[in-house]
Design a protein around this nucleic acid. Structure first.
Lengths: 259, 259
DNA sequence: CGAAAAGTTGATCTACATCAACGTGCGTGG
DNA sequence: CCACGCACGTTGATGTAGATCAACTTTTCG
């Protein structure tokens, strides 16, 4: 799963860590990225960062903690679209759209640092290779979304849950964290339900089942999901990580832009 | 639904038509776009344009006809991700990823014109405002995907179908076509099923129901879906078109890039 | 310590899947 | 031009994954 030894990410910023996955950042790129990570702000769990049908105030980078991006339907139901991990952009669409079609809120205490949306447009004008890295990141987000769609459309509850957990475990492992070390997911079951298109009750039962199969830890303190058998979970859902696109920008793209 | 009189699109290319939605294209932009639409090729219905787990050969623009983008799961099931209408890019990710995580094939006879993927990177370097328009288009695709996810996660079969039909009707109306004029959708029910995460049989029954309600045409020749009452369909699913982002690039973005 | 958030469990219900057979229209080749 | 075959669609009977309703723990936190 990991070709290269995981970077613990203690010195590098999460954003640098992420963008480094697709190309070798130069000194100047790092200077640009520093501008993203200026003054940071700490937000408690349950804070709304972006409100649906609102306007984009500012853009930000998530430095620490977990967020979720979700949509509210007219009848009050909620669909969680994805989870934001450190290094994720928040509200990057500020440059593209006037009105938000989704909401974002924190799942844990978070550190975020906001920046002027114009910063991105300047990168587009002055640093096209770094712009490509941002587009690359965006395209990968979309790839995750497509896979989630396939889950909701064609997988059973059992498979969906396993698939989600494997995905998160892999994404975290890229950041040097490891869910197999007994760290619980900071996601309440109600949120899992709204992510996978299931009812809260059925999520609870499905987790039970995964615990009985020995795939999840049998935690007595009834709180949080703890992985136990990653390979088993992957087998359950026929996990294929192609869609994560763990690969660098093609050489010819870099050449063609960066010259 | 339509603020501006619909452009019939007979003179302008579909791609120009689409990108014009977000900004006023200049002469030079048009020259770049012409490069996308060089020699065109005609493909019969049912042609695979992009194969899953393959490599990106070339990129293309869809000039005429309908395509679908879909994923195949390990167990052979299929999830349709979205439909491509004239003006859509095909395989634009060639610049970003090595391996495809989805497939694309034609639903009708199509005209496509392929171009060197490098063309896009050159636009990124030399014509950032046009690059922004391409990113804008990509972001809008993602917005549709999010809404589809919400459908699969939280809407009933009846609502899902209505929502899909309204969405397609609106997208077509932007191109000057109108589904209410009795034109049938070129989408077989099996494909609708794989789009909405339903079984073929249930799609058939759900269509029946919409016909009984007078929302769809009661076509006797048992082929194709024909709209009848668009407002009724919108009411059924609580349609909110915010996510279509029918708005131009914000002025400050244009200024900030285009100077 | 009390209240609210999070999770569990059981009973019942239903939207949708599955299985199976049949109708309809279209294209192709003889 | 007819006949065969196939893609597409319909219909009915039955099965089931997951929703819903409701009561009850357990944990967290003010």
């Amino acid at each position: 799963m990991n070709d290269r030894p995981p970077d613990t990410g203690t010195n590098k910023s999460a954003l640098v860590l992420k963008l480094s996955q697709c190309l070798d950042l130069e000194e100047e790129d790092l200077r640009w990225i520093v501008a993203f990570e200026g003054a940071s702000e700490s937000l408690p769990a349950g804070t709304d960062i972006v409100k649906q049908n609102g306007t984009y105030e500012s853009a930000a980078v998530l430095l620490e903690g977990w967020c979720m991006k979700y949509k509210l339907l007219p009848d009050g139901q909620r669909q969680v679209v994805n989870f934001l991990l450190p290094g994720a952009f928040i509200g990057l669409h500020a440059n593209l759209f006037q009105v938000t079609d989704h909401a974002i809120s924190t799942l844990t205490r978070c550190r975020v640092s906001s920046f002027e949306p114009q910063l991105v447009t300047r990168i587009f004008r002055e640093r096209p290779l770094l712009a490509a890295a941002i587009v690359w990141d965006h395209a990968r987000e979309e790839a995750l979304l497509m896979e989630r769609l396939a889950s909701l459309g064609r997988r059973t509850a059992y498979e969906r849950l396993a698939h989600l957990l494997v995905e998160l475990a892999i994404l975290l492992s890229w950041r040097g964290q490891d869910l197999r070390d007994g760290a619980p997911l900071p996601i309440p079951q109600a949120v899992v339900a709204d992510t996978l298109g299931l009812s809260l009750v059925h999520v609870s039962r499905t987790i039970q089942k995964l615990r009985e199969e020995g795939l999840l830890e049998n935690n007595n303190n009834h709180r949080g999901i703890v992985l136990r058998d990653l390979a088993g979970l992957m087998a359950v859902c026929g996990y294929d990580e192609t869609y994560l696109h763990k690969s660098r920008l093609p050489e010819k793209t870099v050449k063609s832009i960066g010259g």
